[in-house]
């Protein structure tokens, strides 16, 4: 009996290891290739024949990369905090408060979930241009917090609050707490896992934003990371692959490290979004 179980386990481990390859290899390849001389990028070797780190200093020479890193980071943090606030408020109201026109308004908000950003980018660009806000970070902050990208967060928060047992709120109301008090003292603290999920989704979304920065931003010191990644080219516009990979490594590795350290809270927070579907 015992032997049979372990045989099954060996098979499972084998399967998991094979399945892992396409998930792990690209990251491995990205990190090691960033230290290869450019002539070796297309070779089959798993490790560089000689390690070079000059690509990393080149990244900072060719672009204001530190500044760009800061741009991406602070935008993502503000967007994350802002989205959590807007989504928690709206999600709670749509789930727990009854007010006239509620369903219609919810449908109105949900429209944003259905619109790819390419669809509305021209009118939005005109809007921000008329406000004199192009080549600033405002469009990358305001639109995600209040516009279409926020809708998924509202949806997640609503699904969470809907499943909250009503007894908790009843008791608080008996104690004389108003709506705002109930939300702030009771519901919000309970929603931490869902808020965590929202934070992760939102941070990644902002961190990955590609089309919008390209359209709105025009000077290198305003660029965000994904946009900067495509800028490592030689004089003739040919991409410098190893420098690109060094920059890509620097954008990916810190996030991965944070994830590995905090992964339990991370994944379990995320998991809460799906349970109540």
């Amino acid at each position: 009996m015992r032997r049979k179980v372990s045989k099954r386990n060996v098979a499972l481990y084998g399967l998991l290891c094979v399945l892992c390859v396409p998930f792990v290899f690209p990251t491995w390849w990205m990190v090691t290739s960033s230290m290869k001389p450019i002539s070796e990028i297309f070779s089959e070797s798993l490790l560089p024949s000689e390690w070079t780190f000059s690509t990393y200093s080149q990244v900072f020479r060719m672009q204001p990369f530190g500044q760009q890193y800061w741009n991406s980071l602070y935008i993502a943090v503000i967007v994350t905090v802002g989205t959590m606030a807007v989504a928690a408020l709206a999600g709670y109201a749509f789930a727990r408060i009854r007010f006239p026109g509620q369903n219609a308004l919810f449908v109105v908000v949900l429209t944003g979930l259905l619109i790819p950003s390419e669809v509305t980018i021209v009118p939005l660009f005109q809007l921000f241009q008329s406000l004199g806000l192009t080549n600033t970070h405002w469009p990358l902050i305001i639109v995600p917090i209040f516009g279409a990208p926020c809708v998924l967060a509202i949806f997640i928060m609503r699904q969470f609050f809907i499943a909250l047992p009503p007894e908790l709120e009843e008791a608080a109301r008996m104690d004389g707490l108003g709506r705002a008090g109930i939300f702030y003292r009771i519901a919000l603290p309970l929603s931490r896992p869902a808020l965590g999920a929202v934070a992760i989704f939102t941070f990644l979304h902002s961190w990955n934003l590609y089309l919008e920065p390209i359209v709105y931003l025009s000077t290198p010191d305003m660029f965000t990371l994904p946009q900067a990644l495509t800028q490592f080219v030689d004089i003739y516009g040919g991409p410098m692959f190893n420098v690109q990979l060094a920059a890509a490594t620097m954008t990916a590795v810190p996030i991965l490290v944070v994830f590995v350290l905090a992964q339990r809270q991370f994944i379990e927070g995320l998991a809460h979004t799906g349970v109540k579907g």
Partner: peptide, 21 residues
């Protein structure tokens, strides 16, 4: 309170989703 809570999201949808659409 309900209207106030959904106001930011609603105004955002109006300005950044519905009008552009």
């Amino acid at each position: 309170v309900g209207y106030l809570f959904v106001a930011p999201a609603l105004l955002g949808s109006l300005a950044f989703v519905l009008i552009p659409l």
